[in-house]
Amino acid sequence: MIDYLTSFFTAYGGLLFDGTLDTLRMVFISTAFAYVLGLPIGVGLVLTEQYLHADTTTPGAGRATARALHTLLGFIVNVGRSIPFIILLIALLPFTQFVVGTRLGVRATIVPLTVGAIPFVARLVEQSIREIPAGIMEAATAMGSTRWQLVTRVILPESVPSLIMGVALTLITLIGYSAMAGAVGGGGLGDIAIRYGYHRYQADVMLWTIAILVILVQVIQTLGSQLARRVDKRRL
């Protein structure tokens, strides 16, 4: 057993280590980029919705605009979420080539991962914000908060614990997506599993990549949950 482990890791340890780092790099960078766009879209989904229902909270002038914007945002998000990631990956290849100048490797995979995660992030953010009790939003409105103050001082700070859980979920989902990217030369652990496990019938390499993926998911979920609990001031 010891002999096996020694010889296996001498041969493949570096490969698996680099693959793990590549996966983490792809997933973390893509998640960060996805929040840059997904967070405002998620906030926009909630704000335009409230505009619709609370004829009161906000003046009526922009109602038609809000309705149109809400429908448009919802439509874009739904379209994005209904395309299977493996299809999106391939469909985006020309776009990826245009953005990063290559269709292969870690840098190329970040593009479809980001695009695929944006609608996912937008829905997660929307859900987190909806968890805020209506009374808190109402009190903030009654105190004379502007729309911007409502977002930056109430909506986002009040939903931080839930947003952290959302980030962990996004990272985990993207680990799965990144493995699919391996199928088209994306790099990372998925790439290793397919090249060695599938093309060369080296089941042990594949099993080790799976083991590493399982560990990554566990660690990210545990850290995410712990952090969310630690920052949440509602339970003391």
């Binding site: 009190a139 903030a140 105190m143 700070p157 001031k233 509602r234």
Partner: peptide, 29 residues
């Protein structure tokens, strides 16, 4: 709205902010 105070049955304090920050809110905005 800034010239009218309001309190509620369910208090509606900002759950992630301290007492100090809650009372400071109308002044801060």
């Amino acid at each position: 709205r800034r010239s009218i105070g309001m309190i509620f049955q369910s208090f509606n304090l900002l759950s992630q902010r301290t007492v100090h920050a809650n009372v400071a809110y109308p002044l801060a905005i």
